[in-house]
Design a protein around this nucleic acid. Sequence first.
DNA 1: CTGTTAGCGCCTTCAC
DNA 2: GTGAAGGCGCTAACAG
Lengths: 346, 346
Amino acid sequence: MLRRMNGPVTLRDVALAAKVSVSTASRALTGAGLTSRGTEQRLQRIAAELGYRPNTLARGLKTRSSKLVGLVVHNLTNASFRVLAEVVGERLRAAGYQMLLCVTSDEPERERETIATLTDQRVDGLIICPTGRNGAQLAMLERGNTPVVCVVRQDPAAEAETVLAADPEGAYAGTRYLLELGHRRIGLIVGRQETTSGRERLSGYRRALEEAGLPFLAELVHAGPYVPETGLAGCAALLDRPHRPTALFVANHESTLGVLRGVAERGIAVPDGLSLLCYEDMPGLAWQRPAISVVDSGAVAMAELAADRLLQRLGGGAGAALRRGQEYRVGARLIRRQSCSPHTEA
Amino acid sequence: MLRRMNGPVTLRDVALAAKVSVSTASRALTGAGLTSRGTEQRLQRIAAELGYRPNTLARGLKTRSSKLVGLVVHNLTNASFRVLAEVVGERLRAAGYQMLLCVTSDEPERERETIATLTDQRVDGLIICPTGRNGAQLAMLERGNTPVVCVVRQDPAAEAETVLAADPEGAYAGTRYLLELGHRRIGLIVGRQETTSGRERLSGYRRALEEAGLPFLAELVHAGPYVPETGLAGCAALLDRPHRPTALFVANHESTLGVLRGVAERGIAVPDGLSLLCYEDMPGLAWQRPAISVVDSGAVAMAELAADRLLQRLGGGAGAALRRGQEYRVGARLIRRQSCSPHTEA
DNA sequence: CTGTTAGCGCCTTCAC
DNA sequence: GTGAAGGCGCTAACAG
């Protein structure tokens, strides 16, 4: 039972040792039941003894399936992306796929390269938070029969299915919560209006105000990129004024860090001096004292859904067809903790 | 210039279009200068026009190199692992490799499976934070000429190079800093003593105390797993007592969250009522008010070094040889912010 | 149920 | 400098 060379044990080695043809060995080990019960077990045993492991590359070359799926996100700092990476990775693993994780920093050029490389690797599928500038390439992938699922952001040109957060509803629910607590001057710190989430969260806020018969005041809104500095600047813009808001809605967790600092530096007590509500949950917020109330954007659900859709399409069974442009929304959820209190004053 | 079928453009298509043999096309495109300047450029152009992209699987099958590298970590919550994923991913990408990210939850069985799968995928290399129970498999990889670099934790059986934090020195430096501020009763909340980092950070603390001529008091130490709850429990154990410590050293960032809450709930002012020093930096800590002083364990440097060593060994140039059992330590760094103040009292 | 034959797409001797 | 031929390890017809 000597092997002819060093290097990994190949199917040929197993076949040789078992005195059968390579194809029989293949059939026995892929276990589709295309061989007699006896040889199947015998080959399984011999393969195990020899420490045989199939070469995924060779198999993939033949079957046109690499068992690789790309996950493309902007970074790993954002809690949603982190959740995405963990959840999707786990789901894929359970289904026999491996995850190629790529970070684009939200730069179109990087994204372009990334998609190209993943294509070269012949990934079986792709889950991506698109920049919106490489939709054509994504559409090309779909056309080449490689399923693509967009998450968090949309890219119409990609013609792919998309899993989004219910941002308009989430922001509406959050604002509404503050209104029901009696707040009338509600500040909003929100993402750049060039992004979908930035726009949608602002619109949810506006709608809640309108329904409550309150005017929309631009002076109560501060928009900026998804970084802590935005929160800090927002505090300066909204809190350092005579008639300051009694509640502050911070529409992303990156800005929240800056707001926490801005509020602390001004010696403002939460929730007595200011009610604080944030968007997107992350571990740190529940551990703050007072614990920060949030609108959870549902990152886990988004990740699960994205994985579901991709796996279904990979599986080829029911629901495997591309639902072109189909848009899924996962619900946001208000989590009441300690940072918001009723406002009782004219 | 019609292609015979749908599906990706193959090298053969390019050769056909250029009226050269497949091998010439191959040589021209791999660009080793084995063909005439003219045909090389011509083929580059034609390939580009046709949108040719090499099939990594096929190439890998031949060259025995998948251009894939596995990164195996326990989770993506821990800041060091996150940094590892981002930095290593970027370094690999720049070097033409793709990263297969795998999460083991620190479970040996999961790790075993993961290593097996990565082996099947014929990864060119592996960076792993080992559980310590699958060293034999890792050693097997090395023997099969696949470089392995261990990070954060060691696994003697793996016989691999290892990049570690300088935990003994870091904990020593942190404790020493508090001592120099005049503190004499310094509490320590530290990781489980079954882990290397848990033991090493405790030992650094002890050494600093001894050097200062202070006794080691078990009552000032609380050990537990890397979760916020440990910090909360540690507060109960160390702060709810008559003669409480004047400074608290929290030796991992997971516990820090719990400590922040525990301290806030007790109405203890930082740093006046208690100096607080944490281990492992993360974005949130710098944004806290007061900003939390930390001993940065050097996750970025560890990631860089691990990537360096792996790429060197993959590159095959100088320094490509395995330095069996070689252990690298990256320095910890004290970052003074606002959470520690001098203790001035008998 | 099993063996034989043909590739998957690419690289790489070996000739010319 | 270029072409022809063989094979990486595996699977999938096609025969028997």
